[in-house]
């Protein structure tokens, strides 16, 4: 009886301690969200989503062009990065552990994952901006694609590896060639997980600023052209935040809130997909 009592006391103490840790961890997060919502809410309006930014000192206007610009840059980044990242992941998963090319790719991906995002911007600057002598949405997309590659490749590798070997063997035993087995049987089995990884990687690059500063630059006007400078939410926010005009600072807060919502929605979508996958696995 005594032992049971002390065990219960210790268990309760441990629970309280862990709960306290959670609360402490949540404080900065919640205060950040509160700050953004409370400051940004005032500038939130329909115009924010539809209009271009007003001139310094004038009416605030909106960041509609930057919202569309972020969409354009992310679209091109995804178009470049997803096939490469997923393809590399499948290659890594299907190659032998001691394959030298695979080891080299894996090592490169790990190094790339640790590189600060600004370096990806410099790479894109050197590859696209300097030869073309022009800032462009495409250059920004290349920078973001480089950023999403390593995590996507390693996540895909992990997910494809987690597909039971029995499925691969099942395909091979039917006399289906190895590459076809990988693409038509193994990859679809990992598809739901990869979809989640794709959404998360898009959410991650949508919030990048550094690599875009000297690749896609900025644009105060509407533009969807990939070969022109383009406005993005993050760069717009950066510019507004460091400006001396209160109206522009207010616009920065509103943009921050918008960015929070966009990234939040992408994360939620990823959760929904992942949740559906978990359900599917049980069924």
């Amino acid at each position: 009886m005594k032992a049971a009592l002390s065990r219960r006391v210790r268990s309760a103490a441990a629970f309280l301690l862990t709960a306290l840790c959670v609360v402490i961890a949540l404080v900065p997060l919640l205060s950040l969200a509160w700050l953004v919502v409370s400051r940004g809410w005032a500038g939130f309006s329909w115009a924010l989503l539809t209009e271009v930014p007003g001139p310094p000192g004038g009416a605030p206007g909106g960041v509609g062009n930057a919202l569309a610009g972020t969409g354009v840059v992310v679209f091109w980044a995804a178009l470049l990065g997803l096939p490469l990242g997923i393809g590399a992941g499948v290659f890594l998963a299907e190659s032998d552990h001691d394959d030298r090319l695979a080891s080299a790719v894996r090592f490169t991906a790990d190094v790339l994952a640790g590189v600060p995002s600004i370096v990806a911007g410099i790479v894109a600057y050197g590859l696209i901006v300097a030869p073309m002598k022009r800032f462009s949405a495409l250059a920004g997309a290349v920078a973001l694609a480089v950023l999403m590659l390593p995590a996507l490749a390693r996540t895909t590798e992990e997910l494809v590896r987690r597909v039971p070997g029995a499925l691969r063997e099942g395909g091979l035993a039917l006399g289906i060639p190895q590459w076809k087995t990988s693409l038509r049987i193994v990859l679809p089995a990992a598809a739901a997980g990869i979809a989640t990884a794709v959404l998360l990687s898009i959410a991650r690059i949508a919030g990048e600023t550094g690599p875009l500063l000297f690749t896609s630059l900025n644009n105060a006007h509407w533009s969807l052209a990939p070969d022109q400078p383009i406005g993005t939410l993050t760069v717009q926010l950066y510019n507004d935040a460091i400006s001396p005009y209160p109206a522009m600072q207010q616009r920065a807060w509103a943009t921050a809130l918008l960015l929070l919502v966009v990234v939040g929605l992408l994360n939620m979508a990823a959760r929904v997909v992942a949740g559906r996958r978990a359900e599917g696995a049980h069924g």
Binding site: A166, E169, A173, L174, A189
Partner: peptide
Amino acid sequence: RRRVGMVFQRPNPF
């Protein structure tokens, strides 16, 4: 492998 088929220990439908 099309002439010599195989069935495994655990059912592995795709």
